[in-house]
């Protein structure tokens, strides 16, 4: 074990953290939007949208992310139609291809988490709200969503961690995030162990912070549980 090399690789690898955070942050943001739309279309849409959304979720949950990334990056670029479209401004860049793949992936998983959470809102609460004379949108905004979001937080926390890990696959399409930089250092130093152990520790730290943040959000959202304790 070459400790000096390990120590020297720390600042270089840390330079990949912003890219990793951007990938994860943007994918989670867009993914939440996708998940919200998909969950609503599945629960309240007509049969066609329901089927379509179910198919999307099925495909993206049933295939490895690596296949999705390669298909979006290398596969789409093959078509003149895609290359001459406006979308190419974004799809030309590996960064946006990675964002797209991660977004669609997390969108599919999160929509299932959200759907389950919405379905788990107790019927009694909805009835009570209706009895108070709430409109459908008000009921959804004030009762269903807050309860559902609180309900889904633990599962969503796992999804966030999965995304942090998944972002490492962006290195396979030339992006220089933490893993990409790690591979670059290894290409010059050939020290696989040292570099990947440092890189792994950085991911571990990121995930630790992420899980703490989610737990804090959970704590903030459940004041009624605290009062009892």
């Amino acid at each position: 074990m070459n400790w000096e090399l390990m120590w020297d690789s720390v600042p270089t690898l840390l330079r990949g953290v912003p890219v990793t955070l951007q990938l994860v942050g943007l994918a989670l943001l867009f993914g939440a939007g996708v998940a919200f739309a998909v969950a609503l279309l599945r629960l309240y849409g007509n049969r066609v949208t329901e089927r379509l959304m179910a198919a999307y979720v099925f495909v993206f949950r049933g295939t490895p992310l690596l296949v999705q990334i390669f298909l979006i990056y290398y596969g789409m670029g093959q078509f003149e139609l895609v290359r001459s479209s406006v979308l190419w401004i974004y799809l030309r860049e590996p960064f946006w291809c990675a964002i797209l793949a991660l977004t669609l992936n997390t969108g599919a998983y999160t929509s299932e988490i959200l759907r389950g959470a919405i379905l788990s809102v107790p019927q009694g609460q909805i009835e009570a709200a209706r009895a108070c004379g709430m409109s459908r949108t008000l009921l959804f905004r004030r009762i269903v969503m807050p309860v559902a979001i609180r309900q889904m937080l633990p599962a969503y926390g796992n999804e966030v961690i999965l995304m942090v890990k998944a972002s490492s696959l962006a290195s396979t399409i030339t992006l220089l995030e933490i893993t990409g930089i790690a591979r670059k250092i290894i290409a010059q130093s050939f020290a696989v162990f040292e570099v990947f152990i440092v890189a792994g520790s950085i991911y571990l730290l990121l995930n630790f912070v992420a899980s703490r943040l989610i737990r804090y959000a959970e704590w903030r959202m459940t004041p009624y549980l605290r009062a009892r304790g």
Binding site: G200, Y203, L204
Partner: peptide, 11 residues
């Protein structure tokens, strides 16, 4: 569970 699968496999 906290380290990317790719790194575990490489290691």
């Amino acid at each position: 569970r906290g380290v990317p699968e790719l790194l575990v496999i490489y290691l």
